[in-house]
Amino acid sequence: MKVLVPIKRVIDYNVKVRVKPDNSNVDLANTKMAINPFCEIAVEEAIRLKEAGVASEVIVVSIGDKSCQEQLRTGLALGADRAIQIDTDESLDSLNIAKLLQKIVEEEQPQLVILGKQAIDSDNNQTGQMLAALTGMPQGTFASKVVVDDDKVNVTREVDGGLQTLALNLPAIVTTDLRLNEPRYASLPNIMKAKRKPLDVKPASEFGLNLSARTKLLSVTPPATRQAGIVVESIDELVEKLKNEAKVIS
């Protein structure tokens, strides 16, 4: 079966983001970019399914300008078979991303679509669920375990109270949580090989969709900073402060 993995290019998770002085957005100029960590887990899961003989082909897809080809090549170096870039200079809302992905799902007919549960830039946690709704597929979000069993996939999900396991009819959508797997590093020979793997570029305008903005970003500000407090010398002093100064214990 075919597995489709949509991935996003985001700021490297080790880089602390800065807000632009005019509060129009964050400043990503000259910032190190990387594949979104949750998306990397999604790629890894798809490749493991291929290695286990469950998946026959792994396709990575990303939406953005030419720069996201870098992340697609990373996906190919990790073991994906081919890549699709949906080319656009616009920063699209999640719903529009999901609509473009729906078109790719219709073209490619994957049995499983694995996405990261959220991107670490916009923190929306919605594209996978939206794609599931648009394609009419069932969804297993925040997955910590994925087991394909014939025409079903069992997904164990990280939920507030612990873990929940669902059985979904294929084709289905899975979004990854942190504990699903630990992604591998791409080896140098695989990075070289990835350069020769197919990467299709499709202009977003080709899909005949209305991709007009659904939201308007009015401002971006730094968060309120917390003042560092004091260092106490002893547990006695700590307990005294909590009781009499902060008054949070009695």
Binding site: S94, Q126, R214
Partner: peptide, 18 residues
């Protein structure tokens, strides 16, 4: 977080999260 984006997509709107 699980079902709401599905509602949004079915209603053809984007979700404002969190």
């Amino acid at each position: 977080k699980n079902f709401m984006p599905r509602v949004a997509a079915l209603l053809d709107v984007t979700q404002i999260s969190d």
